[in-house]
Simulated assay, not measured.
Amino acid sequence: MRIQCQGSWLYGIISRPQQPAARGVLIVVGGPQYRAGSHRQFVLLARYLAEQGIAVMRFDFRGMGDSDGEMRTFEDVGQDLSAAINFFTKECMFLKDVVIWGLCDAASAALFYAHQDQRVSGLVLLNPWVRTEQGIAKAYLKHHYSTRLFQPAFWKKLISGKYDPIASIRSLYKMIKSFFIRKKSVAVIGEGANATDHAIPLPARMLKGLQCFEGKSLVITSGDDLTASEFLDLIHSSKDWQITLEDRKVKFFHIQDANHTFSRRQWRHQVAEYTGDWLRSW
Score class of each variant (00 low, 15 high):
178 S>M: 13
175 M>K: 15
151 Q>F: 01
168 S>Q: 10
130 V>N: 10
163 Y>I: 03
149 L>V: 11
138 K>Q: 15
184 K>S: 11
137 A>Y: 11
103 L>Q: 15
123 L>F: 07
193 A>Y: 03
178 S>D: 08
154 F>I: 06
129 W>F: 15
143 H>P: 06
125 L>E: 00
144 H>F: 12
143 H>F: 12
124 V>Y: 01
122 G>D: 03
141 L>N: 11
189 I>M: 05
126 L>P: 02
188 V>H: 01
114 A>Y: 08
132 T>V: 00
175 M>I: 09
165 P>W: 08
107 A>C: 08
180 F>Y: 12
159 I>K: 12
114 A>P: 05
102 G>H: 05
193 A>N: 00
180 F>P: 01
154 F>A: 08
175 M>S: 11
160 S>L: 11
140 Y>G: 06
184 K>W: 06
169 I>E: 13
129 W>E: 06
182 R>P: 01
104 C>N: 12
133 E>W: 06
175 M>Q: 14
151 Q>N: 14
174 K>P: 03
113 Y>E: 04
121 S>D: 02
191 E>K: 10
147 T>K: 08
140 Y>K: 15
165 P>T: 13
190 G>W: 00
194 N>V: 01
151 Q>W: 08
112 F>S: 01
153 A>K: 14
154 F>S: 14
182 R>C: 12
124 V>A: 07
156 K>W: 05
105 D>E: 07
138 K>A: 15
186 V>S: 08
145 Y>D: 08
133 E>M: 03
128 P>S: 06
191 E>F: 01
143 H>G: 06
102 G>V: 00
185 S>K: 11
147 T>Q: 12
192 G>K: 15
110 A>V: 05
133 E>H: 04
102 G>K: 03
121 S>V: 05
162 K>S: 14
176 I>V: 15
135 G>Q: 04
131 R>V: 10
173 Y>R: 15
169 I>C: 11
190 G>E: 13
183 K>L: 03
116 Q>Y: 02
166 I>C: 09
150 F>Y: 10
126 L>A: 10
144 H>G: 05
142 K>W: 02
153 A>H: 11
189 I>F: 04
185 S>Y: 04
193 A>S: 02
185 S>I: 04
175 M>T: 13
105 D>F: 01
149 L>E: 15
160 S>Y: 03
110 A>W: 05
